[in-house]
Design a protein around this nucleic acid. Structure first.
Length: 230
DNA sequence: CGTGCGATCCGCT
DNA sequence: GCGGATCGCACGT
């Protein structure tokens, strides 16, 4: 494989915000269509290279909505095109776009991307020496390709946290708000799919989509049950 | 490059 | 209580 040349700021075209109707479809249809699109927030913009789909209640054991509506997953039952942000493993945030019409509870997890704008701002967010669980320790550098390679890293790069749960990404959001841009859709010939990462059930459902050969796609990790110290 | 482990909070059973 | 849509680091190959 040839040398990787990082993309920069998406040129003029593709800056339009995606229509809400884009997300009013089943998650496994939305996910591949999102590859090559751009999520922007403040100074940082990320071109999406890897997306996972999660289905509505009862249909998908791996989905946070599988057992129905709860306070945590309520946003997933809301209008499409909004952000569902959840907290996991005691230290990480991950972001999804809500899919399907209101009331149905489905979404797509943003698993990885390439920082195409605000590389330095994104890198700065990786150094959090005062936090109990820094994503990067002091004195370490993060390569550009790793800045948004993985769902929790992507959330950090974009400055997404608890307060963005429910944010509407199709509403424009202003120059500093969260907004999902058209970007450049990826040719279907370069899209691959396979089992989802890190899920303990329905691991065989091939609802993880990525851009073939893109180095910012996260490494596949099988689910491993964890045991507790003590 | 692969495997193994610890960190650390929260929702749900 | 238990396990989780994860990650960085140490260590072996």
């Amino acid at each position: 494989m040839g040398e990787w040349i990082p993309r920069r700021q998406p040129s003029g075209t593709g800056e339009r915000v995606l229509d809400r109707e884009f997300f009013e479809r089943p998650a496994p249809e939305v996910a591949p269509d999102l590859l090559g699109r751009v999520l922007a927030h403040g100074p940082v913009a990320v071109r999406l290279t890897e997306i996972e789909a999660y289905g509505p209640p009862g249909s998908d054991p791996a989905s946070h909505t599988y057992r129905g509506r709860t306070p945590r997953n309520a946003v997933m039952f809301g209008p499409p095109g909004h952000l569902y942000v959840y907290f996991t493993y005691g230290m990480h945030y991950c972001a999804n776009f809500v899919c399907l019409p209101e009331g149905l509870g489905s979404g797509v997890l943003l698993r990885a991307g390439e920082v195409v704008r605000g590389v330095e701002a994104a890198r700065t967010r990786r150094h959090r020496p005062s936090t109990a669980a820094p994503l990067t320790g002091p004195g370490r550098t993060v390569t550009e390709r790793d800045l948004a390679r993985g769902p929790a890293r992507l959330a950090v790069a974009l400055g997404i946290g608890r307060e963005h749960n429910g944010a509407d990404c199709c509403a424009g959001g202003g120059p500093d708000g969260l907004r999902v841009l058209e970007g450049e859709p990826v040719d279907s010939a370069s899209i691959r799919c396979g089992p989802r990462t890190g899920v303990s059930s329905a691991a065989d459902t091939p609802w993880r989509f990525w851009i073939d050969g893109d180095p910012t796609v996260s490494p596949y990790r099988r689910h491993v049950p964890r045991t507790r110290p003590g």
